[in-house]
């Protein structure tokens, strides 16, 4: 119990004292995860929407695959990205291993299937409702995809937040490809893992509390910006 109390007061102290190291790793966590989610949304939402509105052989298999990839184990993704980016790997010459870019790549791979699979479901439901009306207007192709993505925007904000949640809370992939290097690739989750392994359980939990707080703030800010206003519109 002592540890848990200590964790809360440590978390409060870290934030109130404006701890520079803390702000650095929070900043890195946010910039890596937000960048990864932005890329994943650009790829995943397009992919999900295209799969939602097209019919082609093997489509069912693609949907099953996308849904299954939502459960991609982070460690496996980390390992695969490590093997690609390692000096001995095919992309080794780029020298990206142990950089924030490597972590962005790993998180993008983790988040894209989540965004694509959820977008596919959301857009397909909306398409069922809009189908005949849009056909009647002659809306096809890219215009159809754009219309559906725009009209599903409030649900898609939730999709993006789900992706962000997966990215920011993930440790298995980033610790392998980032290396948890102090002042370079140390993020919230890898710092928590490190403090845990040092036996500083209260500090680790304190950082965990800060991470949950960040998630709350991000989710709150996003719903404040669009979500809440959208709910009433989305009747």
């Amino acid at each position: 119990m002592g540890d848990i109390q200590a964790a809360f007061s440590l978390a409060a102290n870290l934030i109130l004292s404006g701890d520079a190291d803390l702000f650095e790793i929070v900043g890195l966590s946010l910039s890596v995860s937000v960048t990864a989610v932005a890329i994943a949304c650009a790829i995943g939402m397009t992919l999900g929407a295209v799969v939602a509105v097209t019919r082609f052989p093997g489509r069912g298999a693609i949907i099953v695959l996308l849904n299954a990839l939502m459960g991609l184990p982070p460690v496996v993704v980390g390992l695969a990205v490590y093997l690609m980016l390692s000096r001995a790997g095919p992309l080794g010459v780029l020298g990206l291993l142990y950089t924030p870019t490597a972590m962005i790549i790993a998180q993008t791979i983790l988040v894209t299937p989540v965004v694509a699979a959820l977008t596919r479901q959301v857009v397909e439901d909306l398409h069922r409702e809009y189908d005949e009306a849009l056909k009647s207007l002659g809306v096809r192709g890219l215009g159809l995809v754009r219309t559906l993505l725009w009209d599903a925007r409030y649900s898609l904000i939730t999709v993006a937040l789900a992706g962000f949640g997966r990215a920011v809370a993930e440790v298995g992939a980033v610790i392998i490809v980032g290396g948890n290097i102090d002042h370079l690739t140390r993020m919230m989750t890898t710092a928590i893992a490190l403090e845990t392994s040092k036996g500083n359980l209260a500090l680790a939990l304190g950082l965990g509390i800060v991470l949950v707080g960040i998630s709350l703030v991000v989710n709150g800010a996003v719903s404040g910006l669009g979500g809440v206003a959208g709910r009433s519109r989305n009747v």
């Binding site: 890195l28 910039s31 960048t35 010459v93 780029l94 020298g95 924030p100 870019t101 790549i105």
Partner: peptide, 15 residues
């Protein structure tokens, strides 16, 4: 760090 973040688009310069 920010160089690395934009580095996705600038893989070559990173190398």
């Amino acid at each position: 760090r920010w160089l690395h973040l934009v580095g996705l688009g600038l893989l070559v310069s990173c190398s």
